[in-house]
């Protein structure tokens, strides 16, 4: 579904991505792990076009999207969420998700009709919110929501764009452990058609939910494999236990 070839990026002399080649087939749940500063978020920024790669190629569903801006990539189904909440504080979740749907359906340029007249869009927005158990709070302003609910809204906004590939940047960042398990259950329940790549530091969650794992270190991909392979690999142990991280 999503393939990158030879992605490079450096800031001055600092190389943050070196020859990144990954291939995500449809419907697979990938975890992207690695120590702090390994370049995980940078990779998401490169794939979604928030950062321009110095070299390399990104292909989504057979189409080369390397030259496209972030908006066009989203329209083609490559969508991300943010590690630090990036929401619309003074919109209600219902408004925010409806906004995303209106933009997707290209009715966002209509100024002579009320939003409420687009009943299908509103229904869909409400459906998305309910599926992430946000139905009860969807009329309150986003900034009034509990932190965990805001993390869910991050995902709801991404889902509203009908993604083919969903890149989740630490979806449970800052969420207490008991709740993060719930959050990942919600992620696990997402449609199996969606390819998911998520960054997560909690290894228990990673091993529970990912069908494949990519390990990044120092801007490069160290290895990729099934959870069992990763758990058994001595290099991963080295990085996580022997390195500065531990």
């Amino acid at each position: 579904m999503l393939t990158t070839r030879g992605l490079d990026k450096s800031f001055g002399s600092l190389v943050v991505a070196r020859d990144i080649a990954i291939s995500l087939p449809q419907g697979v749940r990938y975890a992207l792990i690695g120590p702090n500063g390994a370049g995980k978020t940078t990779l998401i920024n490169l794939m979604t076009g928030m950062l321009r790669a110095d070299g390399g190629q990104i292909v989504l569903g057979g189409e080369d999207i390397t030259a496209l801006g972030p908006e066009e990539r989203v329209r083609r189904g490559l969508v991300r969420t943010f590690q630090i909440n990036s929401l619309f504080p003074h919109l209600t979740p219902l408004e925010a998700v409806t906004l995303a749907i209106c933009e997707r359906e290209r009715i966002a340029r209509t100024w002579w009709k009320n939003t409420a007249d687009y009943r299908a869009a509103v229904d869909e927005a409400y459906g998305v919110l309910k599926s992430l158990s946000l139905g009860a709070v969807c009329y309150r302003q986003t900034h009034e929501l509990a932190y965990g609910q805001q993390r869910l809204l991050e995902i709801a906004l991404a889902l509203a764009t009908k993604p083919k590939v969903l890149l989740l940047d630490e979806p449970a960042a800052g969420v207490p452990r008991e709740e993060s398990s719930e959050l990942f259950t919600a992620i696990n329940n997402l449609s199996q058609d969606i390819t998911i790549l998520f960054i997560e530091h909690d290894m228990e969650l990673v091993f529970r939910l990912a069908s494949r794992i990519i390990v990044m270190v120092g801007g490069s991909i160290l290895l990729e494999g099934t959870p069992d392979e990763i758990a058994a690999d001595p290099r991963v142990r080295e990085v996580y236990l022997g390195g500065a991280h531990g």
Binding site: T48, M50, G69, P70, E71, E72, V74, R75, V79, R80, F82, S86, L87, F88, P89, H90, L91, E95, A96, T98, L99, A100, C102, E103, R104, I107, A108, R109, T110, W111, W112, K113, N114, T115, A116, Y118, A121, L157, A158, A160, T161
Partner: peptide, 28 residues
């Protein structure tokens, strides 16, 4: 009043609230 209640008005408020996120939901 009509503009502010329309999908277009909703997008404007989205731009005000968070222009970065607008890009991330595919909005120009």
């Amino acid at each position: 009043r009509r503009i502010t209640n329309s999908p277009f008005g909703l997008s404007l408020r989205g731009i005000r609230e968070n222009a970065v996120r607008m890009r991330a939901i595919g909005a120009e």
